[in-house]
Design a binder for these strands. Structure first.
Lengths: 204, 204
DNA sequence: TGACAAAGCGGAACGTTGCTCCGTATCGTC
DNA sequence: GACGATACGGAGCAACGTTCCGCTTTGTCA
């Protein structure tokens, strides 16, 4: 029996107990994928990423069984940063709604600067389901917290779900990148305006 | 010299001066495409549409050089109906904003009942550019008219472009069809609420 | 009616992509 | 140094979009 893997429990550091070349390849792949995503979008052919990394396609599929896994891995840090910014903004901003607005700005920035990410996230085909899941699982609770705070402060009506709002915002961000006729930020701002409580606290 | 085509000018009825079998095939194709779109979405493989129609693929490409041409042809009537509803609603509704809201409802209904149409319309790949162009060219002026009327009535702020609004609405309609967690209509309603003039007429 | 050219048709063929599978090379260990 | 486990590479398959060209159908004219 080979020496059993030392860590019996969770997998906070997923790169343990793997062969050295495998770990190297994983890093190489992440770098290559990030580079290709910038130039060709997250829909870039797997072959292209493999070529950029100088590995075979089998290697990609072994490390990242679905395309979504690769995308998630590449952008994990940024999603994490966005998630962590939520509570901080809530503590620092003038009001919960202001915090929500700033947080949404962060989220939108993230989406629009990643060519095709928003498109991919909304797509119901192409094996992006996992991506969808991860991003949303991580960010929805953060959004919900901001939303709840704004509701408690009577700044917005209580009948909007965080998941729905985030998908709406994500949707608004799909489209060509530098289109001067369509600015996702303006539309998102409109959406947030619509969220805002106008008149009485909550009505009969 | 063969008999010169009789009609020298425009082409309001495009099906003239074509061979009888070609005209028949064009109709067959439209029916087949409509049927396939319902079951498989507008992204259905060309081969599938050809098979449904009982024709070769060359025939499809001859009649509809791009997929967008086919989609446009299939949904032309509905787009037309939507366009024509604009002025009527404006005349009948209680206020310009109410008319706008009703018209947007129509538009959203159209998008969400056509599996994948919204997705396709926003896509920047797949040769859907023409689709994008036609739908928008036809509907944007209608939307602009409604928007202008609402601005004149001081119901909304004057700084939103029809094209941008329509793309935003279209984007909000992207996504899986029967997802209980995401209702495009709710998000569109929120967007319209954000459009609404809240306080003073427009002041500095 | 028959013949003939133009118009239209079908689908084979090519390029691209996603994904799998297995013979081979590399690594870690004894 | 040897040996098993692990990982790698890329050939191969299927699905799709699109083109291209030999064959068929149609309309016309004598």
């Amino acid at each position: 029996m080979p020496p059993a893997p030392a860590a019996p429990s969770g997998e906070p550091r997923p790169a343990r107990s793997k062969r050295a070349d495998a770990q190297r390849n994983q890093q190489t792949l992440l770098k290559a994928a990030a580079a290709v995503f910038v130039t060709s979008g997250v829909d870039a052919p797997i072959r292209q990423i493999a070529a950029e990394a100088g590995v075979g396609m089998g290697t990609i599929y072994r490390h990242f069984p679905t395309r979504a896994d690769l995308v998630v891995a590449v952008y994990r840090h940024q999603v994490e940063a966005c998630a962590e910014a939520g509570p901080r903004l809530l503590a620092d901003a003038d009001s919960p709604f202001a915090a929500l607005r700033e947080w949404v700005d962060l989220f939108v920035d993230f989406l629009v600067t990643k060519h095709g990410l928003a498109n991919a996230m909304q797509s119901d085909s192409g094996g992006f389901d996992a991506l969808h899941s991860y991003f949303l699982d991580r960010l929805v609770p953060v959004c919900a917290q901001l939303l709840d705070a704004a509701v408690d402060a009577d700044e917005i009506a209580p009948d909007t779900q965080a998941l729905e709002l985030m998908r709406g915002i994500g949707n608004l961000c799909v489209g060509r990148d530098g289109d001067p006729d369509y600015d996702p930020r303006r539309m998102v701002a409109l959406l947030l305006r619509g969220l805002r409580q106008t008149g009485a606290p909550s009505g009969a």
